[in-house]
Structures are given as C-alpha cells and as structure tokens.
Design a binder for these strands. Structure first.
Length: 465
RNA sequence: GUCCCCUUCGUCUAGAGGCCUAGGACACAGGGUUUUCAUCUCUGCAACAGGGGUUCGACUCCCCUAGGGGACGCCA
C-alpha cells in the first residue's frame, strides 16, 4: 500500500510553529516513503473558520516548502459524503438520534464533576429508537465494554477502556457533521496510511478507531507527536513573540533554518545538528521522535539561521535580502551589490533583518554617530589622521580593497601610530558605528565619493567639539 | 475531579542493562586568531525528578510518589 500522510489544520488562525512541525514530520515521512502528502482543510466549524486563515496556512506551507501532493480538500465540500456515512451508521445500528436538551446535558456534566466523576453522556436516548426531528443530533453508539488498543508509533501501546468513552455526537442538530466523524471518513476515503498529528488528539483516537471499526474501515497507523511549548515551558501563546511561522519570515529568518530548527525539535539523528533537506528525508524516522514536549529556544534558531546564511549560495541569500531591503525602505540602487553585502555581513548578522540594519550605511547617510564610539574615537588629534588619509585617498584611482589598505597602512606609518588609531576613527566616520567589515572592504563597497564626503562630515563634527 | 500521556545539563538532545568519570549542540564564562565587530577555534560551567524493587550490575526494566501536559463541547 502506498504511504499517505496528511496535514489537516482547521482554518481558525495562522499556521503556528507547532502545526508547522507536525506538517513537516508528515511531509518528511511521505517523502521518505515515496508516498503522498495530503493537505486537508478541516473547516466544519463554520463560525470560526475563515478564508484569511486558509490563505495564511497556505502561505505558511508554501514559504516552508511543504508542498502537498493532493488537495487541499475542504471538508465543507464533502457534506454529502458525511451524510451518507452517518446514514450508514444509523442503518447499521451504530448510531442513533438523540433529543436531550443542552440544559439536561449541562446539568448532567456539572453533577458528574461535582461527584468527582468523568463527565460523560449517559446514553439516555441510546435505545429509544428516536426518529430525526428538529432538535435531534446523531450520536455514535460507542461499545459499552472492552477496550481500544492504540499501537502508536511514538507513544507505544496505549489502552483505553470503552467505559471511559461515551456516545459522542457525530451530527449536530443543524445537520452539520462533527470533527470526529469527518476525520474518520476523510482518512478512510483518502486512504491515509499514517496519521501523524499533535498529541492533543491522542484522546480522540480511541473514539475514531471505534467509528472506523463500525464502518468496517481499515485502521491507519498512528503517530502522536508531542507539543511545542514557549521558551518558558508554558503553552505557546502570543506573549512568547513569534507564534505564526510567517512572523519568523518577517523577522528575517530563512525558511531553511526554520525547517532545520523544527526538525530537531523532538527528533534527532545522533549528534547531527544541520541537515540538508535530502538528509532529513533520508534519515527521518518516526521511531526517532521523542515522547516529551519541547520548548522553543530562539537563540538556537538564530544560530542556525546564521549558519544557513553562511552556508547557502550568496546569490540566493541576496535574493532573500532584497525583499527585506525593500520592506525596510532601502533603495538598493544606492549602494553595493547585494551579493557583496551578503558575503561581508553574513558572519556579522543573525537574521536578514540584522543584515539590513548592518548594511544600511552603504545606501543611506546616517543621522548621528554612535555616541559611545564617537566619545572614544573622535578626539581632536584625529583631524590629522583624517587629513593624512584624505591625501592618500583623493588621488587613489584604483578604488579597491588592496589599494585602500595600502593607503591606510601608509597613514599608519607616516603618523607612527597603531592601526587601531586610524582604522577605528575611519570606520566610525564612514559607517557611524564601531563595527563593520574590515575597513578596506568597507571603503571599497561604500565608494570613493561617499567615503570622502563622510570623512569631511566627521571632521566638521570633531571641529565643533 | 476522572482518564490518558510525559519527566537526562538553563534549552534542544545522545543514550535500547555493563561502552557513562553520562556524549553533542545552543546559551553562558574564559583563552587563542582577527590592531573593529563578528566568524573560526580551544577550555570551562552544567543533568539522569524522588523513593522503592528486579539484577552480579540500572539513565536504561517494574512499582509508587511528585511535578508538568492533554482530554473530558452540538471546537477542531
């Protein structure tokens, strides 16, 4: 049988980091097994599902490169099929109509909780043989005894007694099917072989298996993967910063780094930290997924992101950088080639947004010198240094790092000072900050005209002190 | 409350009874390289939740306790 996995989000919000990892694991497994990866939108909650959320999920998947082979399927387009299956269950005496009021249900739940019992439907209408009516729902006849054994690929054997379960609603009074029914029908119809999903669904699994059995359907393999918590170990929430995967995009992370970060969260292959996509596919195995939940660690993501900026082709990274330059209002026509910027700044930036800020001075004049650096570097005697430098630079036709370096060296020699006495004030003068790529390359990329203008500007600043 | 699940350095993890004086990575601290910053590199810091078993031997197996998470909806 051909392996088929699926990612089945409900479109009630953006694609968050936990969902993205679930999708990644499903996708990886399908890739590894040469199977299909299906995207299914579970939009049966019509109140909360929105088109914006669908788009946000699709965007997130696309950015991460998690392409689906089939779909997206929308559950709202499959209502006829669900109706048919519900009828089949009723006809087979596996489901029944129930007219218990919400008030009765609520009161019962409260009472059970007060008695320290697990709240469950009491089966009131189970044998009444009710017909469909205005206010009736359809409930599944869950077996009363025996147990359900889940052989989960991550959790191992999990046994749930049927007496812990109750007769869940599979069709609402408005005629809409509910989640536990639709998942089962879809996984069955779509011939899903491996259900890889968050472990918040582990508790639903026995119910779903019972329905599958009643339908005479094949029961898929299951793998319930643990949750991802925020950096503080608490449940992921907006307070933790980036929750939507697209927020990582906005903050300047490469999708390659995010994928690599995500794959190592809850999964590992020995001591390896960095994986190409092909390596991931080759080495990924469900049995290597951890059982315990993991916490987000932004520092590690930042480290990975830098590793990827260094490792990836500068032409590609430059293409990505162009997006952020535009986004941050920098005109890339006013400065050096982006590939040069990438090569010079990738070891000095954690994210592409960092890189934008670090290269800004090549493209735009800055307002003020870094205060601390100016205090340290801009002393009156620097005027001599700048005059000397200018003398050499003005006449320099070959505006390249090597020649520029020679001018700086000559200045150092003539003035009989240390390199730092020349390089640092110069760096501050042209960049406005205390750090940049090596000074000769910085000047080369900045260009002769801007360099000289900025030295003049710095001299005026110093004279006013 | 009831049921289910989880528990190795601060964090991500390796570990399938002796290979463990518990390894790697991020972070952090210190050194080296770089007359900037970073990169790179070296060193250091730092963990088997607790208690009982089983065994010649337990991080690894079993039980209990504690802590954390999830489920218990006409949400998914």
């Amino acid at each position: 049988m051909k392996v088929r996995t699926r990612f089945a989000p409900s479109p009630t919000g953006y694609l968050h980091i936990g969902g993205a990892r679930t999708a990644l694991f499903s996708w990886l497994y399908a890739q590894k097994m040469g199977g299909d990866f299906i995207l299914r939108i579970e939009d049966t909650d019509r109140e909360r599902s929105t088109q914006e959320a669908v788009d946000a999920i699709l965007d997130g998947m696309e950015w991460l490169g998690l392409e689906h082979d089939l779909g997206p399927y929308y559950q709202t387009e499959r209502y006829d099929r669900y109706k048919e299956v519900i009828q089949q269950l009723i006809d087979g005496d596996h489901a029944y109509y129930c007219n218990c009021s919400r008030e009765r249900l609520d009161a019962m739940r409260e009472e059970q909780m007060a008695n320290k019992q697990k709240p469950k439907y009491d089966g009131c209408c189970r044998e009444k043989g009710l017909k469909a009516a205005e206010d009736t729902v359809v409930r599944f006849k869950n077996p009363l005894d025996g147990e359900v054994v889940i052989t989960d690929h991550v959790r191992g054997k999990v046994v749930i007694r049927n007496e812990e379960l109750d007769d869940l609603i599979i069709e609402r009074s408005d005629g809409n099917p509910t989640y536990n029914l639709t998942v089962v029908v879809d996984d069955w119809d779509m011939e899903i072989t491996h259900v890889i999903r968050g472990d918040d669904h582990l508790n639903n699994t026995p119910r779903q298996i019972n329905i599958l059995k009643a339908l005479g359907a094949h029961i898929p393999e299951y793998a319930h993967i643990p949750m991802i918590n925020g950096p503080d170990g608490k449940k992921l929430s907006k307070r933790h910063g980036a929750v939507s995967v697209m927020q990582y995009h906005e903050e300047g992370y490469l999708s390659e780094a995010v994928i690599n970060y995500l794959v190592r969260l809850g999964w590992s292959h020995g001591d390896q930290e960095i994986f190409t996509l092909d390596e991931m596919i080759e080495k990924f195995d469900i049995k290597d997924i951890n059982k315990s939940s993991s916490n987000l660690n932004i520092e590690k993501l930042q480290w990975l992101n830098q590793q990827y900026m260094i490792k990836l082709d500068p032409v590609y990274v430059a293409e990505q950088l162009a997006f952020y330059m535009l986004e941050h209002g920098i005109n890339i026509e006013n400065g050096p080639k982006l590939t040069d910027v990438v090569e010079q700044l990738r070891e000095r930036s954690k994210t592409l947004v960092d890189m934008v800020e670090n290269c800004r001075f090549f493209y735009e004049d800055f307002e003020a010198f870094n205060e601390k650096a100016a205090k340290k570097q801009f002393k009156p005697d620097v005027i001599d240094v700048f005059n000397q430098l200018k003398e050499g630079l003005v006449v320099l036709d070959d505006w390249r790092a090597q020649a520029i370096h020679q001018v700086v060296e000559d200045t150092v020699e003539k003035l009989g000072v240390g390199f730092g006495k020349v390089g640092q004030p110069l760096r501050l003068a042209v960049s406005g900050t205390g750090n940049s790529p090596s000074i000769d390359i910085t000047l080369e990329l900045l260009g002769k005209e801007k360099t000289l203008a900025r030295i003049d500007k710095a001299m005026k600043y110093i004279e006013k002190l």
